[in-house]
Simulated assay, not measured.
Amino acid sequence: MSGGAVASLPEGLLDGGVWFRVEAAPTASAVRRTAERLAVELGLPEPRVAHLSIVAAELAGNLVKHATEGVLLVRAVRTAEQAGVELVAIDRGPGMADLVASVGDGHSTAGTLGIGLGAIVRQSSWYDLHSVPGKGTILAAQVWPAEPPKPAWVAGLTRPLTGEPVSGDAFSVRDVEGRRQVMMCDGLGHGGLAAAASHEAVRAFQEAPAVPPAAVLDRLHRRMSHTRGAAVAVAELDADAGLVRYAGLGNIAGTVISSDGSRRGMVSLPGIAGHQRRQIREYDYPITPDAVVLMHSDGVVDRWNPSDYPGLLIRSPLVIAATVLRDAGVRRDDAGVLVARLP
């Protein structure tokens, strides 16, 4: 995570994003400048850059003033037609009991993100918010150059090990010939070589033909033989069949979480994609429209309990993923979370 200004954004950081630990006013200014720079590089028109600047300033400023352990992610978001900027603010503050009142202009509660939420709502193309008293607040916002796309059915977040500039965890999403598939990857170790292994998994996943998850995973295994290897899992959400088809190698955890908070784990077999595999098998699991699929690396522990977060499972996949990353991610490892629901 960064605590200072970012003078430029290397191409590789546009979609991976930049994390900030927001504890002081200079860092809040750096967040705003980074968001503006990214917007310009993505070609957002000047009025939308100005709107983004307000959103970034309010989010970061409120973390400085009111949050505990506040962090903020700035990254690009894309569709086939356009690119925008996404901001995800995460804190462990006291939280907000009344979100409707907090969004109203002029509302302020010490220790919350209450100040400025009205401006964030007005200037954003899309936003989502969840807060639990005693646990903290997640606020995600996007600014697009034109009409925003439909809310995403899937979202993921990765965070590097403390002190590392890049994460060895990665995720990817694709919709090919009607197959809606997601991939979560944890490159062995940390740093650049782990990131290289995960980046190769992402490339191979995006280039794979429209085949079931087990066949996709086999292709990834063969493509990653020149890397140090990774734990990888691929899931396919089939709305017509009401199924999740899942294949995994290594310690990627996959879970189907029902609307009542009950969980069903999905099976990943022992192995290292790129180096060791005894077999690749695919398993089917039932899923309902109100359930979510959660996938994460071993940098996220399983102590997270959905019942401790009233109303969370109806929020966006991005807010769910951010909550899990905050409360179940560990600092001694790269951490990656992906959340999807039937589109």
Rank of each mutant, 00 (worst) to 15 (best):
E177L: 13
R203Q: 12
A208K: 13
A208G: 12
S167R: 13
E200K: 08
R219G: 14
D175Q: 10
R222V: 05
V202P: 02
C185P: 01
V202H: 02
G191H: 10
M184S: 14
V176T: 10
G168L: 07
D175C: 06
P160R: 11
L220G: 10
P160A: 07
R222A: 14
G163I: 11
L220M: 11
R174C: 12
V216R: 00
M184W: 02
D186G: 05
H226D: 06
H190A: 01
P165S: 12
L193F: 07
A196T: 13
P165R: 14
R179W: 01
M184P: 00
P209I: 01
A194M: 09
R174M: 12
A204P: 03
A215I: 01
L217Y: 04
E177G: 02
R222S: 09
A215R: 15
G163T: 07
M184T: 15
D175V: 10
A197Y: 05
H221L: 02
G156V: 04
P160C: 10
A208Q: 12
P209F: 03
V166S: 09
P165T: 07
H190Y: 13
A197M: 07
S225T: 12
L193S: 12
P213S: 03
D169P: 10
Q181K: 04
L188T: 05
F171P: 00
T227Y: 06
V176H: 04
T158Y: 04
T227D: 06
R219P: 00
V182R: 08
R159H: 10
R179D: 05
H221R: 06
A155V: 09
E200Y: 05
D169N: 14
A170S: 15
A170E: 14
P160L: 09
T227E: 11
V173Y: 13
A155H: 15
L193R: 15
R180F: 08
P209S: 07
R228D: 02
S167P: 05
P165A: 14
G163H: 11
D169E: 07
G187I: 14
T162S: 12
H226Q: 01
Q181T: 14
G192Y: 07
M184G: 05
R159N: 06
H190P: 00
G192D: 12
V216K: 00
G189E: 11
R174E: 05
V154A: 15
A201N: 11
P213Y: 00
G156E: 11
S198D: 03
G187D: 07
A215L: 08
P160Y: 11
A197I: 04
P213A: 10
G156M: 09
R228Y: 04
V182E: 11
L220I: 13
R223Y: 02
V216E: 12
S167I: 11
R228Q: 10
T162L: 14
R223L: 06
R203P: 04
A204V: 00
F171L: 05
G189Y: 04
P165H: 14
G168N: 09
T162C: 06
R223F: 03
R179H: 12
M224W: 04
V202G: 01
R228L: 13
A196V: 01
L188F: 01
H190L: 00
A170T: 03
L188M: 14
V211S: 06
S198A: 15
H190Q: 08
F205C: 11
